[in-house]
Design a protein around this nucleic acid. Structure first.
Lengths: 344, 344
DNA sequence: TTGACTTATGCTCTAATAGAGTATATTACT
DNA sequence: AGTAATATACTCTATTAGAGCATAAGTCAA
């Protein structure tokens, strides 16, 4: 259990903080045509993503905001993230949770590739301030533009059958042995709900990693420096491994929603139940049974009706307005809403 | 989103890998008096825990194994951990999962406290090789010796009523305002299942942090340099923030057991159902209903009976021997065993 | 050899919950 | 007034969870 001190202190190891800042764009207030889209805070262009100034790149593209970890001023990495987000963006996140620490070799590819190792502590942050100033360089991106196959709200995305399944089939058949083929096939089936297996909305990361391995996303083509003479899966790519970090955040958030009342971090102070439902559906990526959702939410005690107040009706009976009951957090050991899985 | 390069590269930031290596000591093979105790791999004495050679301490005590992260030879931090564990210990962990990255200021307290910042990427590793050579300095420690209040297998631990509740009551009453008192009280109730709230076995970390804040564990007395003229909660303390890391691992493992078949990483290749049950109970910290556990496990398809084979009976009808069905992992999207919470 | 004891295993009963659907209420619009 | 749209209340059923009883298959000691 002895080790050389020198190994550790070499220059060229950089610690940074990556943030997946999520909000939900509530297109309108209750009533007819209520819409909700999950958004991620994106910075575009190398000079923004490379705020530590040490990771040169020639590529342009979408990236997650990335800030320095300053051991002198930051008590904890999480406080560091909060202060950096507060200083550098117009966002004040309510909920912040550490996701994962990413430290793969080669995750930052630049001229100094071999010298430099970037360790990123990834965070998930939730906010309901979706109306922030944006520009061409800094904006809220629709998270399903990066992961279109994750959006089952209007049924199974077509590309799964037309692009992903054929692509994976090719990858399965490219395996060496029959054994390896079987292994690849079962993995593909499990991830993408093929062969009678149910789709699991939490497997966002596993699916992305599988597509990467099967070289069906641009990042794989880029990192492995291959020529893609076949159809890639639709979806916006990101710089570095940021799409992987985003996938990690989506998996985590989809899981968390089921047992902790984090949705409310994404809601305005007053909302209708449809409003809340559309927000949950937006995150989970699939539709829910309206009456049962209502029963669930009302019986959970997480929410209280605002007496008298009604939403501005738009094409139907006006809905009651609700607010989050902060007190509920103090009454039950692990409040949340048990959400059903998608019907496979 | 610009930052100074200098902030990052200062010397005095060390990245290390901490491992919570868990095994279960199966005291005997099925039959009467079957016992199981969860164990953690412990190193005692500063020279072992400080293998990076940069964190001086005067104290002696139990610590988690800690290894360097070497950007030159480690493709990923997880591979770094695996290789370091393999080289430096007799353990070959099967399952490894990243837990959390700890980087609080002051988590390593030494002469150079203000200069040095240690960032530890914490890992949870599971193994069933509990029979490894040990010494006075390196051994398997009973994890309930560090967290005796977490063991409800033989009912509610007495110390909760005799030491923890009174200690927390004092802490509640020491709050400034009535509001703050109420807040502290509800927090204590939620954590420790007081006032009619059910005990939640997953809140290991929250409970430890509460005890720390209420200065009822030695680490708080040590870090805050106060004089403890009152009774501390029983339980072995650890160096640095290692008991917090262990608590994080326990929380994670208790949660994971409910939806992923990780128990089998802790089992020998053949086992009886009682054996399996005792192992789950050991991790979860509370007893389970035997017949229902059997129904659950058998219907899950995670396990198959070994035809003909029976356990060596010890005082009763011999039990059938089972083995883990690896194939089950490939059949269902998220296999596991839904475990009931402790009856509040 | 038999009866007491111990553990394993099979089965039943009941309460709670989840999933799906029907029915009615309240609004706007034509 | 009638139609469309949404909100809300309620019902029905299948599944699951929690608890306990009954029987099986061994050991051990008198």
């Amino acid at each position: 259990m002895k080790a050389d001190n020198q190994n550790i202190k070499k220059p060229g190891v950089v610690i940074g903080l990556s943030a997946v800042i999520v909000s939900v764009d509530h297109r309108d207030s209750g009533g007819a045509g209520t819409q909700a889209e999950p958004m991620v805070f994106i910075v575009r262009g190398a000079e923004h993503t490379l705020s530590v100034g040490v990771v040169p790149t020639n590529e342009d593209g979408d990236a997650l905001p990335f800030g320095p970890f300053d051991p002198d001023s930051h008590e904890t990495p999480e406080l560091g993230l909060r202060s950096w987000v507060k200083d550098q963006t117009p966002i004040v996140p309510g909920y912040v949770e550490q996701l994962y620490t990413f430290g793969n070799r080669g995750r930052y590819i630049g001229q100094k590739q071999d010298e430099l190792r970037v360790i990123s502590i990834g965070y998930l942050a939730l906010t309901h301030q979706e109306k922030t100033r944006t520009s061409e360089k800094v904006f809220w991106g629709d998270w399903y533009s990066y992961f279109p196959w994750e959006d089952w709200r209007r049924g199974k995305p077509e590309m799964i059958g037309t692009v992903i399944e054929p692509g994976l089939k090719k990858w399965v058949n490219a395996a060496d042995s029959a054994e390896a083929k079987l292994h690849r096939r079962t993995r593909a089936n499990l991830c993408f709900g093929l062969g009678g297996i149910a789709w699991d909305e939490e497997k966002v990361l596993e699916r992305y990693e599988l597509l990467y391995e099967a070289r069906l996303v641009y990042e794989a083509v880029r990192d492995k420096k291959i020529k893609a003479d076949y159809t890639l899966v639709p979806g916006t790519s990101m710089l570095y491994d940021h799409r992987r970090i985003l996938a990690t955040a989506m998996s985590r958030l989809r899981g968390k929603l089921k047992y902790r009342p984090v949705v409310f971090e994404l809601m305005p102070s007053e909302f209708t139940l449809l409003h809340l439902q559309k927000t949950v559906e937006a995150i989970m990526g699939h539709p829910l049974h309206k009456q049962n959702f209502r029963r669930l939410v009302e019986s959970s005690g997480m929410v209280e009706e605002i007496p008298g107040k009604k939403s501005a009706a738009a094409g139907g009976r006006p809905a009651a307005l609700f607010r989050f009951r902060r007190g509920a957090l103090l009454e039950r050991p692990s409040p949340g809403m048990k959400l059903p899985p998608i019907g496979g």
